[in-house]
Amino acid sequence: MNLLKIRLIVLIERFKKVTAVADELGVKQPTISFHMRKMEEEWGTTLFELKTGKVLLTEAGRLLHHYAEQIDRLYTEAELRMLELQKNGLRKFVMGCTETANTAFLRGAWFASASEVADIQLSLVTGDNDRLHDLLPEGCVDLIVTGKPTSLPACNNLLLTEDPLMLLLPAKHPLAGSMNFTSISAYRLAQLPFILLEDSSLREALNAWEAAERITLSVRWTTDRIEQVLGAVEAGTYLSVIPSCCINGELLNGIAAIPLPGPPALYRMYAAWPHTSWDPQLAARMVSMIQEQAGKSTR
């Protein structure tokens, strides 16, 4: 079974038409039919069946497709990585992170440390927790930093930090001048408009706090960009909640950050990467740099 046949069965499942597969591969239709017959001869079973003008996979074909899809995906990723290497002589290391992780760790000193890794090209992909966890087994990313641990058995999983959620409000807001933050009523917060960062793990931590306080915050707007959250708070329009690891003086211009009332609501951040990384030492080095930045964020 060569790579052409691997690609062929993936495309048959996708298009369900021999002509469409032939067009995609840039070959003639009889060539596709020939390889389909050869595949069935090689495996000694029927892989394809014709129904209502479509080519469908048999049960054996679906089993083979499961593995073929993974091989095709990995080979495509290898092609892209090798093209990058040929183009600029640098190996490509792809990191995936949520907007929360990006704000918390991948800034300032981290970029200075990462720039010392001179023999690679760094690529950063942002997305939500679930999407990044889907990319990891596909080989599209080498390392992810998200708000939830991975459940994949073939991956390393490391808790980076555990931070309390902080209330953001305009610096001139009456609550910002309170000398005793514990006296702030959670019920009073429920009467004010909030803008929240789109982060499922952040939402889960906040839901737990709301349940403990028996309130529901009035969320008027959500966004996946922290700059919009901070801009709306600074303008005096909304309040918000973010993990303490995301707070630094550069971002909080005209914004006050105080602890949420009641019991601490904790937000956890995790790093995950495959056991079979193409460069285990490089992956470990990247994780170490993020750990160091995470330590600074909690001080």
Rank of each mutant, 00 (worst) to 15 (best):
L4Q: 10
K5Y: 12
I6S: 09
R7S: 09
E13P: 02
K17V: 11
V18E: 06
V18M: 10
V21G: 10
D23T: 14
D23L: 14
P30G: 13
S33E: 08
F34N: 12
F34K: 11
F48G: 03
L50Q: 10
T52E: 15
T52V: 14
T52M: 15
T52I: 08
G53D: 03
K54N: 13
L57M: 08
H65C: 06
H66P: 03
H66E: 11
Y67P: 00
E69K: 09
I71K: 09
Y75G: 07
T76L: 02
A78H: 01
L80Y: 11
L80I: 08
R81P: 05
E84L: 02
Q86D: 09
K87D: 14
K87I: 01
N88Y: 04
L90D: 11
L90N: 12
C97W: 03
N102W: 06
F105A: 04
L106F: 15
R107H: 13
G108L: 12
W110F: 12
V117A: 12
G127A: 05
L132P: 00
L132W: 02
D134V: 11
D134S: 07
E138F: 11
C140K: 07
L152K: 08
L152E: 09
P153K: 00
A154I: 06
L158P: 01
L160H: 03
L160F: 00
E162N: 04
D163S: 12
M166K: 05
L169P: 00
K172M: 03
P174K: 05
P174D: 09
M179G: 15
T182R: 11
T182G: 12
S183L: 14
Y187H: 10
R188D: 15
Q191F: 06
F194G: 02
D199G: 03
D199I: 00
L202V: 05
L206I: 00
E213I: 13
R214E: 15
I215H: 13
L217P: 03
R225K: 14
I226A: 08
Q228C: 07
V233A: 07
A235K: 01
L239N: 09
S244G: 11
C245Y: 01
I247F: 04
G249M: 08
L251Q: 13
L252T: 12
L252Y: 11
N253Y: 03
I255N: 04
I255T: 10
A257R: 07
P261T: 08
G262P: 09
R268L: 09
A271E: 02
A272P: 00
A272S: 12
T276P: 04
W278S: 09
R285C: 06
M286N: 04
S288T: 07
M289F: 14
M289H: 08
I290L: 03
Q293G: 12
Q293D: 02
A294R: 00
K296V: 07
T298R: 10
T298P: 03
T298G: 01
